[in-house]
């Protein structure tokens, strides 16, 4: 479980996060939603320790990040997996090299053990014939899947995804969402996902945090989000014409 308490972060004059508190539970997919520029990426990077918060604390299963020594922080980070907004694959390495990288770096496994593990995770993300291709030679959706494979290869306790399905077609996007959801339940991972995709919200939003202007505006599940009276949230949720129509039909049907 990850607990965030009163998190503040500014860049110079701009106060991006203005005191966010929340809890993310194990084995659940936690979604951070909000408009572009609302601070989702900054929030996630604070959780990852890439940005140090100005105020507030973050604890991982009781361990407060800022109170750990540098080497303890490094050890904790080895338990984290991250899927970046732009995949961030190492472009000098093949798909297989990318996925194997953390294993070679931090485990003492033999070559064949590593190979088995790499084959296993790549199969898990439905990529079987791309082992020797370079990131520039595969499609965006495949890159995302390699990034997920790389993030889970070390069996992380915490998985973070920054817009894992942006820029993908709806079908692939759902595939990726379901994949993350399944992996989360299968391995009992604490997963935090940034998104502005309403499909993801409906499909896998077990817990949702809505950010607005650097504050937590609303919190709840995907069942609750469609019933809420909070104007900012309904504004966001029903910003798409499709959803507006769906809601209209739902209301008409009810009457």
């Amino acid at each position: 479980m990850i607990e965030v308490d009163n998190l503040h972060k500014s860049f110079g004059e701009s106060h991006v996060l203005k005191g966010i508190s929340s809890k993310f539970e194990k084995g659940k997919t936690n979604l951070i939603i909000g408009q572009s520029g609302s601070g989702k990426t900054v929030f996630l990077k604070c959780l990852l320790g890439l940005f140090s918060p100005d105020k507030g604390s973050i604890s991982y299963d009781g361990k407060i990040y800022s109170e750990l020594s540098a080497s303890e922080q490094r050890n904790l980070r080895q338990e984290m997996g991250m899927v970046f907004q732009g995949s961030a694959l190492f472009d000098s390495m093949t798909v297989q090299g990318n996925v194997m990288f953390p294993l070679g770096m931090f485990t003492k496994q033999s070559k064949s053990e590593m190979q088995d593990r790499v084959d296993f995770v790549l199969k898990r993300v439905n990529l079987v014939d791309a082992h020797n291709k370079f990131p520039s030679e595969i499609s965006g959706g495949m890159q995302k899947r390699v990034a997920i494979a790389r993030a889970i290869v070390m069996n992380p306790k915490y998985l973070f995804c920054d817009e894992p399905n942006s820029g993908l077609d709806p079908k692939t996007a759902i595939l990726i969402d379901n994949l993350i959801h399944e992996i989360t339940q299968e391995y009992d991972i604490t997963t935090v996902i940034n998104t502005h995709d309403m499909n993801s919200v409906m499909e896998i939003g077990e817990k949702i945090i809505f950010l607005k202007n650097g504050l937590k505006e609303w919190e709840g599940s995907n069942k609750e989000i469609f019933k809420t009276e909070n104007e900012a949230v309904t504004d966001f949720v029903y910003s798409s014409e499709l959803f507006k129509k769906v809601r209209q039909m739902y209301i008409e049907e009810r009457n």
């Binding site: 732009g86 190492f90 770096m105």
Partner: peptide, 18 residues
């Protein structure tokens, strides 16, 4: 620099690599 802008350096850091 390319590794920096495409967040590959962040990816290394998160894995726990210096």
């Amino acid at each position: 620099g390319t590794m920096r802008v495409t967040e590959q350096i962040d990816a290394l850091e998160i894995m726990g690599v210096n």
